[in-house]
Each structure stands twice: as C-alpha cells, then as structure tokens.
C-alpha cells in the first residue's frame, strides 16, 4: 500500500464489518503472535470495527517486562501500546486464562477489558470475520 493509498482509506466508504483477532499463542516460541500483530496493523488502514481477544497462552503476549535481547528477537510487546493510535482500542482478555496463569490485568502492558467466558463467547458470536492465531 502506498502512502497515498493509506491516506485515502477514509474516503473508501464501504461497509464497516466487525473483525475479531483471536490470539492464543505465547509470543516468541512460534510466529503466530507477531504475524497477528502485523495483520492487525495492516488491517487498521481499512477502518473496520476491530477487536482483539487474548485467550490461553495468548495472554502472555501482553505481559510486562519482556526483554528479548538475549534471544536475538525483536521485543514487539511495546507495539501493543501503539494500537490505540491505529484506532484499535478494543482489547479483551479472558479472565480464566489470566487466572490459570497466575496473572491479572495489572501484569499487562496495556489497559484491557477482562471478560468472563460468557462475555467472550458472546463477543465471538457477534463478529462478521474471525481471524485465529
């Protein structure tokens, strides 16, 4: 996408759909988490109604204090704090996944909304498109 195309995105009009990105993998052991984040950032240019869900090991993507120098990989956790500037503001985290891992919302690098199972299930059912990672 050229810079100009990206500037025109608002003029595109069209139907706004509800997109949910479901993240269920820890950040560095596989490429899923980084790929998901990149798709979210690219997709943000299309002005859709975007939500991110973090379930199972996906909650580990958001933990504070990540230091990746020693493994020679980029620490992409600060990028979650940039999502707001991309108008991606709806971040939902599964309560049971946090609890099972001894975590709570204060351990996460960004403000999130913590949902119980029923709320998360309802969130999923209201989407037009679900991207799973």
């Amino acid at each position: 996408m050229s810079d100009e195309d990206m500037m025109d995105d608002e003029a595109g009009g069209g139907v706004v759909k509800k997109f949910l990105y479901v993240n269920r993998k820890a950040p560095y052991g596989t490429i899923y988490a980084l790929e998901s984040l990149e798709v979210v950032l690219i997709g943000a240019a299309f002005d859709q109604d975007v939500s991110l869900a973090f379930i199972d090991d996906g909650v580990y993507q958001l933990t504070k204090g990540q230091q990746t120098d020693g493994i020679g990989m980029k620490n992409f956790s600060p990028t979650y704090r940039a999502l707001e500037m991309y108008d991606v503001e709806k971040l939902y985290v599964d309560q049971d996944s946090l609890t099972a891992r001894g975590l709570n919302a204060e351990d996460l690098i960004v403000p999130v909304e913590v949902l119980n199972t029923t709320q998360m299930a309802e969130l999923m059912e209201t989407q037009d498109v679900v991207f799973s990672f």
């Binding site: 479901v22 269920r24 059912e125 989407q127 679900v130 799973s132 990672f133």
Partner: peptide, 8 residues
Amino acid sequence: HSATQAWL
C-alpha cells in the same frame, strides 16, 4: 455459518 473460528 456467520463466521469461522479456528482453534489452532
């Protein structure tokens, strides 16, 4: 179905 959720 309305959408597909893949549990990978």
